[in-house]
Amino acid sequence: MEPGFVLRPPSGGVFRFDPGTLWLDLLVSGGPGELAVFETLHTPADAATWSGLCRLRLDPARVHVTAGELTALVRLRDGLWELAWALTRGDPVPPGIAALVDRAAAPPPPAPRLRVTGAGFAREWTLPATGTHLLSAVARDVVDVLTGPHADRVRECGGHRCGLVFLDTSRPGSRRWCSMERCGNRSKVRALRERRAPDAG
């Protein structure tokens, strides 16, 4: 299944957005401050639903999240938004982020399983899983990304007032948009209109 989320922003339209890695998948679920209007993690069941939509693709019916684990997941997500903003804007990493990630990463994540298919092999996850498993998987992904070859490729979409954040895993490292069908096309249309506009002088 193609990674990413089908987003329906309040401004209208529907588009697919692939954040590029698991920890940025979590940011799609909402966030602090002005991002609270996009909140989707209201109940433990919502966290289980997210586990089926993110790149883990777990079976939500077999993911059991407690109220305390939901609170920890939201706390981690909001901290990761602060981390993402620091990375994309060149600001200092907020204090306490490393400790927040380390605590979440300490328990084991979901255990992988090998499935033999007609075309070769596929990875599955040992279920049932818990909210603590989800926290660990997300936090370990933060460590992997920020200590890996794409550590400097956490980007904010170049679209006007978009704000979505993604990991640019393209070979040339030239991804600019959350989605070409949304912000990429809007930018092209805006640039075309500006070129066609009569000179002010």
Score class of each variant (00 low, 15 high):
Gly68His: 04
Thr49Ala: 13
Gly68Asp: 14
Glu82Pro: 00
Val65Leu: 09
Val65Met: 10
Glu69Ser: 08
Ala72Phe: 01
Gly68Tyr: 00
Ala72Asn: 11
Arg62Lys: 10
Ala67Val: 15
Leu56Gly: 07
Leu80Glu: 11
Trp50Cys: 01
Ser51Cys: 06
Gly52Thr: 09
Glu82Ile: 01
Pro60Tyr: 03
Arg77Ile: 15
Arg57Cys: 02
Ala67Pro: 12
Val65His: 08
Leu70Ala: 13
Leu53Thr: 00
Ala67Met: 04
Ala72Asp: 15
Trp81Asp: 09
Ser51Ile: 02
Thr66Ile: 09
Thr71His: 03
Trp81Cys: 07
Asp59His: 02
Ala61Asp: 13
His64Met: 10
Arg57Met: 00
Gly68Ser: 08
Gly79Ile: 11
Leu76Gly: 12
Val63Lys: 01
Leu80Met: 12
Ser51Val: 02
Gly79Leu: 12
Leu80Gly: 13
Trp81Ser: 06
Glu69Leu: 05
Cys54Trp: 09
Leu53Asn: 00
Asp78Met: 06
His64Arg: 15
Leu70Asp: 02
Leu58Lys: 11
Arg62Tyr: 07
Ala61His: 08
Leu70Trp: 05
Glu82Gln: 14
Ser51Lys: 08
Val63Ile: 09
Leu53Met: 01
Asp78Thr: 09
Leu76Val: 12
Cys54Lys: 05
Gly79Trp: 10
His64Glu: 13
Asp59Asn: 12
Leu76Ala: 11
Ser51Asp: 04
Cys54Asp: 07
Trp50Leu: 02
Ala67Phe: 01
Thr71Cys: 00
Thr66Lys: 03
Leu70Phe: 11
Thr71Lys: 05
Leu53Trp: 00
Cys54Arg: 03
Pro60Asn: 03
Thr71Asp: 07
Leu73Ala: 12
Arg75Trp: 02
Arg55Lys: 00
Val65Ile: 08
His64Gln: 14
Leu56Trp: 01
Trp50Ser: 06
His64Ile: 11
Leu73Cys: 11
Arg77Tyr: 12
Ala61Glu: 13
Val74Gln: 15
Arg75Glu: 15
Ala61Cys: 01
Leu56Pro: 06
Gly52Trp: 04
Ala72Arg: 15
Glu69Tyr: 03
Ser51His: 05
Glu82Lys: 14
Glu82Thr: 07
Arg55Tyr: 02
Gly52Cys: 11
Ala67Thr: 15
Leu70His: 07
Arg62Met: 10
Leu73Lys: 04
Leu53Lys: 04
Asp59Ser: 08
Gly79Glu: 12
Leu70Tyr: 03
Ala67Arg: 15
Arg55Thr: 10
Trp50Lys: 01
Leu76His: 10
Val74Met: 14
Asp59Trp: 02
Cys54Phe: 09
Leu53Val: 00
Arg77Glu: 12
Gly52Asn: 06
Leu58Ile: 08
Arg62Thr: 03
Arg57His: 05
Leu76Pro: 13
